[in-house]
Write a protein that binds this DNA or RNA. Structure first.
Lengths: 151, 151
DNA sequence: TGAACTGTAACTACTCTGATTACAGACTAA
DNA sequence: TTAGTCTGTAATCAGAGTAGTTACAGTTCA
């Protein structure tokens, strides 16, 4: 699990908070158990979500985290951007003393083009809310018979 | 330069080949000089481009690489996919013995949703050809006065 | 044959991520 | 007031990916 699974963990975490929205605060230990990782990892991610006003935290006994908004008002794009990972693709620039102008000029162009591609991805994430994700999960549970639909 | 700049390097490399399309083969040393890296790094990337029929290589004296198609027939999506990096976002699955069904079920849903987002990005890359990139570079060179437009 | 190439293995250095431990500080309830 | 339950955060470790580099066998051409 070396490469970047932080977004998946962040969405899973936010999903847990969405499910438990009406049950008070949820501790990082409980979340870590469901997400299957260490509570510190969860707290680090929650720290970023708090910084971007997606989650609020209460310290002390009975404390924990909860969403600041309804699940249908939080998009995956907000979670993605909250992680503050910088550009998706690295485009190292070249020094001015480089061998040729073409080499120097091509990098900003590549950066621009890849930035546009990343923006398209973010646009897609903007259209998906936490509620959408939880609904998909619910549908799967119903399909598998674990969860019974109300009639 | 630890994180993933391979796509930028691959596009830069293919861009070099596009510019030199009519000047025979280009050696990995020459490309490495412009891209500002080691020739082995270039050969590793070119190997992947060859595997996906974007580039052809001739060994021996006077050998090197060249594009198999015209620059306006090669999209950035093809280059992106040629790098074979797997999914953009890792979504580690949970073991069946996990504490709750919700935790197990949410992961495939997250994977599906992120896959859709990546697909949107690839769609954008499909609309951009190597020729487009080179045209943008040319425009920048003209703007900066380094390269004079034909009148 | 010698020079100019590629392909590839092997190794090092660096960075990112996640896992873990540890501990100070905040808060609640008895 | 005190014990217990939380968070926030620093510090450290291990594993994985990437780039950089050297080295060398194989290919091709003059």
């Amino acid at each position: 699990m070396a490469s970047n699974s932080r977004l998946a963990i962040a969405i899973h975490t936010a999903g847990m908070l969405a499910v438990m929205k009406d049950c008070g605060h949820l501790s990082s230990d409980k979340i870590a158990e469901s997400v299957s990782t260490n509570s510190v990892v969860i707290r680090r991610i929650i720290g970023l979500l708090v910084k971007h006003n997606l989650v609020e935290v209460q310290m002390g006994t009975g404390g924990g985290s909860r969403l600041t908004r309804a699940p249908n008002e939080i998009t995956l794009a907000e979670i993605y951007l909250a992680l503050e990972e910088g550009a998706l693709f690295q485009v190292p620039m070249l020094e001015e003393a480089h061998c040729c102008n073409l080499g120097i000029t091509v990098r900003p162009v590549i950066a621009e083009v890849l930035q546009e591609a990343e923006s398209e991805m973010i646009k897609k994430l903007q259209k998906i809310t936490l509620a959408d994700v939880m609904q998909k999960v619910k549908n799967r549970l119903i399909e598998s018979g674990v969860f019974k639909e109300k009639t």
